[in-house]
Amino acid sequence: MTARASSIGRRSLLRNVLRWVIFVVVGGYLLIPLVAMLEFSTRETPTAMAWKRTALGWKGIADNPSVMSAIVLSLELAALTVVVMLFLLAPTMVWVHLRVPKMRRVIEFISLLPLTIPAIVIVVGLAPVYSRLMPVIGQSPLVLTFIYVVLVLPYAYRSIDASLRSIDIETLAQAARGLGASWLQVFLRIVVPSIRAGLLSAAVLSIALVLGEFTISSLLVYDTLQVIVNQVGQDNAQVAVAVSLAALLFGFVLLFIVSTVGAGRRRAARATAIEAGLEEGDLYE
């Protein structure tokens, strides 16, 4: 008994050592570039390392009008993309879920399609579409929203779908309809609050994707954040690296907040599941 216990103890010690080796090696491999960005962006002379630090690279962000207007443009595009995505996709998915389940597979297939059509392929066919539609939609850089909604479709679909699956929306909707609610009321007062977490993560993923988008905007010659960062990088690498690091940190904070919200919800679901005597396996940890 004790021999077996000690062998298990030794095994779990080994496992922990292995885990930390992996964290240090793989984690370090990914983390060092981020540290290097901080180091590089705060150097006094860009070509040599020294202990003395400067914030000039970071100040350069605010002093550079093209960087600032690119940040504004990308944030506007992100906001518009989220709005259009939510208004287009969420009602469609809920409607299909409740009223036309036959269409579910079709909508899923279409929504995941952009994953398999590379952005560089779409952009080749996009220029003629934009030039044809120019009289209707105009030529402000904000027209990128239309194609960005397509790009975020797979990620948004998955987030919302996971939320829809986790609740018994049919019964809730039926109950509400039975009590005299209209479909609009069902959607706004029953469904939307119950899939809040999915909508939130769909929105955050869309924001991250739009802020990081380069392929389409650069080839259609619009000055979004990534295009300008790339351009600034040619002559002032420190400012470009500072902007990149700032954007990465911003994205990280966004995703971390969403994971905290998500974890809160999962914990609640877990508590219910545990009360019901499920998930004993998971309690093992």
Binding site: L30, P33, P46, Y155, G212, Q226, A237, V258
Partner: peptide, 27 residues
């Protein structure tokens, strides 16, 4: 969360991270 950012946040910034680490004047 860090994986989400690195995996989906765009290649231009990762290129700068790479150059700041391994480039001619990288860390």
């Amino acid at each position: 969360a860090a994986s989400g950012v690195l995996a989906q946040f765009g290649g231009v910034m990762l290129t700068f991270a790479f150059l700041a680490t391994y480039g001619y004047t990288g860390l």
